[in-house]
């Protein structure tokens, strides 16, 4: 069988399953970005808060999850989560090991890491909002919540865009490590295809190429979005 057949969409081909795995990689990365967005917003708020313990907790979180190897975080969530689930199972009179669903474990683990990076992105974006614009909002009588919703949040989102692009690219690469939990994303699927056909080189090159496609495409999309935003938005940063 030629290599074209192996990666093609025929009966023996792995093309279909690789494409499906690519979608799985996108899905788990997107889920982790969402998990990280919630965590990141909370941690950023903690880091910016006036309360010293909150700031300390926020700093501890970002230090740990940016300093620990990604693989270690995945082990923490996967094994730790499975242990917790098993313990709950025991309470409900189920004897035996219960695994955490690998998609959930992966999304949470990469989300924990992404949350640490997103926290820094949001904090930076918050600090980039011109203080004077907040003064202006206060001066016409906007309350805290209204100010956040109408003045801060839209600008934080826009300023976060480049940083979020970086986080997305990081998470795409981190998602390969979810393969250790057995989730059939692109890395794991390439590995299985490689092992069962003994065509290691071929399938790792194809897998790598698919990742290149993903990173390149997402780069394009984020650049496009940034340009769209920049067009209407403060393009003369010097003038405040």
């Amino acid at each position: 069988m030629s290599w074209i057949d192996l990666i093609g969409f025929g009966e023996q081909g792995r093309g279909g399953i690789l494409l499906w795995a690519t979608c799985m990689t996108l899905a788990v990365t997107a889920a982790s970005l969402a998990v990280g967005a919630v965590l990141g917003a909370v941690i950023a708020a903690a880091k910016l808060s006036a309360s010293r313990p909150a700031r300390w907790l926020g700093d501890a979180y970002t230090t740990i999850f940016r300093g620990a190897p990604e693989l270690l975080v995945i082990y923490l969530v996967y094994f730790g989560g499975s242990q917790a689930v098993t313990a709950v199972g025991k309470l409900l009179n189920y004897e035996g090991f219960l695994g955490l669903p690998s998609f959930l474990a992966g999304a949470v683990a990469v989300g924990l890491i992404s949350g640490a990076y997103q926290a820094e992105v949001y904090r930076g974006a918050y600090q980039a909002v011109a203080r004077g614009e907040i003064d202006a909002a206060r001066s016409i009588g906007m309350g805290t919540l209204l100010r956040f919703r109408r003045i801060l949040a839209p600008q934080i989102l826009r300023f976060s865009l480049p940083g979020l692009g970086n986080v997305w690219q990081l998470s795409l690469k981190d998602s390969t490590l979810i393969s250790v939990t057995g989730l059939a994303e692109l890395m794991r699927t390439s590995q299985i295809a490689a092992g069962s056909t003994k065509q290691y080189f071929l399938f790792f090159v194809v897998g790598g190429a698919l990742y290149l496609v993903l990173t390149t495409l997402s780069d394009r999309i984020f650049n496009f979005a940034e340009r769209r935003v920049a067009r209407s938005f403060r393009n003369s940063l010097g003038r405040r």
Partner: peptide, 23 residues
């Protein structure tokens, strides 16, 4: 630079460790 920054390290590592030994 495009290839090595754009693709994940793990797949590069497997390519070298498992992939090259195939030949």
């Amino acid at each position: 630079i495009f290839v090595f920054r754009g693709s994940p390290l793990l797949i590069q590592m497997f390519l070298i460790y498992y992939g090259l030994g195939q030949f």
